[in-house]
Design a binder for these strands. Structure first.
Length: 507
RNA sequence: GGGCGCGUAGCUCAAUGGUAGAGCAGUGGCCUUUUAAGCCAUUGGCUGAAGGUUCGAGUCCUUCCGCGCUCACCA
């Protein structure tokens, strides 16, 4: 079904026709460029500084972002990957026809290349004096923002694309006109790069494990389901990497990590997207306290590398990433925020009673661990603004973590919180195959009775563990949320290029 | 899924139930150092969709679609 063109698009299609009639190919196959905008400006400044003989001759390429036609001369700006540079055209230098065509046939948003000599205008801007230019690609649809200026190197928008729906659905347009959006994704890439550097330097091996899995596990989320036609097999998109990465420890790979996509068929909100990027690493012979220290070191390494600072502002709040982070025992934290010492209420009923006494609503179907988890989310998590490790969790919400010696009800697990947001989750990994089997069975029983969601028994994982798994510490962290912190993004969608939105009927 | 809010020109936004407007960009002019260039003129709308109330609906009511916030859900 052909697109319905707007009036503005029809005008541009007419210009396209006029160009063709003049023998100008609106989408030539090849382009030329000798300098980026920044390189050209730097080359000219070097020429000025060092009194070189001749001003630099350059060919620049980029997108036309502004045009000021003033009779026999025209000023314009093109934008490329490095920034913007001004073009200056004079009818008597480019030729009258080419000059007229530049003013009439080109539009904001078109890609062009321009050749000439760099100079500095009276107003002081380093500018390309165009001898020749060539259209590289005609834009039919106008970019949604048209007016902005550059003040002290900062782009000030006077009109912009603000509607979040359009920004996310047409991210290409958002990126094309909002340089700060491009910057978010450069920062995101830098974060991932820095994490790799940090882990690689410590002898970790980066691996890739299956995304399509016959049995999902490693987290408590509902999965997406799919189907392999030829194998006639139902498959799940992974909800975590954990069980596959720990199999690798059985295989004598002592330190492994993976950075990749997880998929969870759950609600969508400010901090949750159905697919998100996760880092998980597993480190043989480490426990959760060592992982805690690694976490601090890694985050600080990334902050130094990416931001060049360890104190950042997130949504108006100053956050200090300098280690050591606050360490707060979960039991103590819940006691302080709710007045409930869950250790004093060892059964679901006793804990539920204590909660009701304090006016805290209780889900009658929730087991004890879920009640405690609820207290964390509702009362504790919002108070954890500065980086905090919450540690020692109840066993029954942590089926893959190892018990604390001498306390079978609790496990060696911590979660890292910043800005009231859960950032990471780690534990001393359970490596006792018999205990693990018991936990799986308990979970199956639990989920059978209360949850509609059954956690499948992963027999191959148990078999792997029976071969012997070294004691190890494991770690998981959401890259999207770390990027939110580092880019001061209020919403996870700001840091995902193409966030999932409900499908909309077009036309 | 519940509650609240929003949806008007390409973009950003106006418009007591009474003729749908502005700025920007677009179009036509003038202009040889501008930079949100300026000046003159001017095009552009199925007001998210469908019903209803009314003499009359962008505005009130109902349903639907989409987005945002929020609650619920979410080891």
């Amino acid at each position: 079904m052909p697109a319905e063109y707007t009036n503005l698009e029809k005008q541009r299609l007419e210009k396209l026709e006029q160009l063709k009639q003049k023998g100008i190919e609106p989408y030539p196959t090849r382009a030329q460029r000798t300098h980026t905008s920044r390189q050209a400006i730097e080359a000219y400044e070097a020429f000025e500084r060092e009194n070189l003989g001749e001003a630099p001759q350059v060919i620049l390429a980029g997108r036309l972002r502004s045009m000021r036609v003033m009779g026999k001369i025209t000023f314009a700006h093109i934008e490329d990957g490095d920034g913007r540079v001004q073009l200056f055209l004079r009818a008597d230098e480019v030729g009258v026809d080419a000059f007229e065509s530049f003013n009439k046939d080109l539009d904001l948003g078109d890609f062009i290349q321009a050749a000439g000599e760099m100079f500095r205008t009276r107003a002081g801007e380093v500018t390309l004096k165009v001898k020749e230019y060539r259209l590289l690609a005609k834009a039919i649809t106008p970019l949604p923002a048209a007016k902005d200026e550059i003040v002290d190197g900062q782009i000030v928008h006077h009109a912009t694309l603000a509607d979040p729906e359009t920004r996310y659905r047409q991210r290409y347009a958002d990126l094309a006109i909002n340089p700060e959006v491009r910057q978010i994704f450069r920062t995101r890439a830098a974060i991932v790069r820095a994490i790799r550097e940090f882990l690689d330097a410590q002898g970790f091996l980066e691996v890739e494990t299956p995304i399509l899995q016959p049995i999902y596990g490693g987290a408590a989320a509902r999965p997406f389901t799919t189907y392999h036609n030829q194998l006639k097999q139902t498959l799940f998109l992974r909800i975590s990497f954990e069980l596959y990465l720990k199999r690798l420890l059985v295989g004598n790979l002592e330190r492994v990590y993976e950075i990749g996509r997880d998929f969870r068929n759950e609600g969508v909100d400010r901090t949750h997207n159905p697919e998100f990027t996760q880092l998980e690493f597993y480190c043989a012979y480490a426990d959760y306290l060592q992982v805690m220290e690694m976490t601090e070191a890694m985050i600080v390494y990334v902050a130094d590398k990416v931001l060049g600072k360890r104190i950042l502002t997130y949504q108006g709040v100053t956050l200090d990433l300098n280690p050591p982070w606050r360490r707060l025992e979960l039991r103590q934290g819940i006691l302080e925020t709710t007045g409930i010492d869950f250790q004093a209420y060892p059964t679901t009923q006793a804990l539920a009673g204590a909660m009701r006494n304090r006016g805290i609503p209780v889900d009658p179907n929730a087991p004890r661990g879920k009640l405690i988890d609820g207290l964390i989310g509702d009362y504790l998590e919002p108070t954890l603004i500065q980086p905090t490790f919450l540690y020692n969790y109840p066993r029954d919400i942590s089926p893959l973590a190892k018990s604390i010696p001498g306390d079978p009800t609790m496990v060696e697990r911590f979660e890292g919180f910043i800005a009231g947001m859960e950032l990471c989750n780690a534990f001393t990994e359970l490596n006792d195959p018999l205990d693990q089997e018991r936990r799986f069975l308990e979970m199956g029983r639990d989920y059978d009775s209360e949850d509609e969601q059954r956690h499948p028994m992963d027999e191959d994982y148990l078999r792997a563990m029976r071969y012997g798994m070294p004691p190890n510490g494991g770690f998981g962290m959401g890259i999207d949320r770390l990027t939110m912190l580092f880019t001061d993004a209020p919403n996870i969608r700001e840091v995902i290029l193409f966030p999932h939105l409900r499908e909309r009927e077009e036309e």
